[in-house]
Write a protein that binds this DNA or RNA. Structure first.
Lengths: 262, 262
DNA sequence: GAGGTCGTTCAGATATACTGAACGAATTTG
DNA sequence: CAAATTCGTTCAGTATATCTGAACGACCTC
């Protein structure tokens, strides 16, 4: 919490800490925040009043809750992203045809963030909106890493960065080979009969933008059709995505949308 | 912007203003923010560094963007809400059976906030996640106001509050009567053949929690089935909702979830 | 290669955020 | 029903941390 703070910061950090505490506890009073964060009551009151005035916190009945403004700001970030716009239609049809749950992930550095969900059935693995999981822990990780290796084969491009893919053992490498040949990865969670199919979304130049997954219950129809259907959806999303980028590039070459090409 | 600020605030307000500017412009540089908000470049740099350290802003390639942390915080607020949990299953089935788009609204004071969407088809009215519209402008407004009037008839309950329903003309009153008798409202937007059916979600005691809407294309099947199907879904959601509140009330009578009973 | 723009850093001066105590109100205890 | 406690809020003073302005280095443009 009390970082060495290489840059110059201070008051805002406290306000945001309070905000996140309200999120975790979902709702708290002044003294509760003050004792938890070891701050003066009056200080907490000032910060909370500020957050209320700015619309980030509500103040009903002596309890402070985070408001829906965070959802609104984050939602517009998502809605404006070309990845979401390109995937929207396919997510709907993919979920409808497979009768499963479709998740859209956005690649951020070495993590994958879930930004959209379509479909639902009781008992399905709960993924939270905006949930950020490291690539090494999620199923989208292997498929992204495998895809990256493939593009690296084509052209050395940039530096290999900070990832331990260079020294993978043969076991993992074999798995990557399978994923690469098939185009998607399959995961069967322990304790559940659900199967999750995950494929990567990348641009024409090979940069990975995100991933698309579809989870179907174990007792659903043909097990292979979901994977094939996923590949079709991915192909269409990538097509729409590249066409969007082309139209943007020729129009206004200002700033490309989140091209963390590193 | 420079409000009279009845309370004591200051630095945090500036940081949040910068954050919202980054959201609107989707991404900006230091000088762009400084000139827009009439602040010193070094000041803006400090605030942006703070936001980056806290994870609310990313800093790739000389451009500052809002990160997905806002979506994550807002998403957890939504996922934990009993309204969303109760409506999840019904939203899916309602969207699937009507082949339309289902929106879930949360009532906040005199506004309705869209917190979840299920289904999609090209050309449908775009509602943004977290979008907050006054009750007077949206279709969910009349249905909520009509429902409130009905509950007011039953028991005077609280004070009539600040709303101009008391002096509505007969035209509006007739519309309310129709909505009350049917249970939902229908809206046909100009320039589109889509029809939106909106119904209110309320607890057993009559307090309005939110609204559920389903929008179907004009050329879809039977026009009435969507409304009937909506009523079924609402009934089930309200059932699940009240049972959730009962289990919570008997378990821990600490703080009820967002009971803006006023 | 020169001019301009942009991001970043640094030290000083000013403003302002933090502390502590006290008040009123709501809630719980006896 | 009354007393005591808890909680939220307000207020003035002090010390802190924020803001300013200029200067440096990097990047892009002409």
């Amino acid at each position: 919490m009390a970082e060495p703070s290489p840059n110059r910061v201070g008051t805002t950090e406290k306000s945001l800490t309070i905000l996140e505490l309200l999120q975790q506890e979902d709702g708290a009073g002044v003294t509760e925040v003050a004792t938890t964060l070891e701050m003066s009551k009056s200080t907490v009151h000032s910060h909370l009043s500020t957050l209320v005035d700015c619309g980030y916190v509500t103040h009903h009945d002596r309890q402070y809750h985070v408001s829906t403004k965070l959802l609104r700001l984050g939602g517009r970030l998502r809605d404006q992203s070309p990845l979401y716009q390109a995937a929207r239609i396919e997510m709907k049809s993919l979920a409808a045809e497979t009768d499963g749950v479709v998740h859209l992930f956005l690649k951020e550095e070495s993590d994958a963030t879930m930004i959209a969900q379509e479909g639902y059935y009781p008992g399905v693995r709960e993924r939270h909106l905006g949930e950020r999981t490291p690539l090494s822990e999620s199923i989208v990780g292997p498929v992204m890493l495998a895809e990256r290796e493939r593009s690296d084969d084509g052209e050395p491009d940039d530096a290999p960065e900070e990832d331990d893919v260079s020294q993978v053992d043969d076991d993992v490498r074999d798995r990557f080979d399978r994923i690469r040949r098939r185009g998607y990865a399959v995961e069967t969670r322990s304790g559940s009969s659900d199967r999750t199919f995950a494929g990567v979304l990348s641009r024409q130049d090979g940069t990975v933008m995100g991933a698309l997954t579809v989870t179907v219950p174990g007792d659903s129809g043909s097990p292979l059709s979901a994977g094939d259907r996923l590949l079709e959806a991915i192909e269409r999303v990538e097509l729409s995505l590249t066409s969007w980028y082309d139209s943007q590039a020729t129009f206004s070459p200002k700033h490309s949308w989140h091209v963390h090409s590193n």
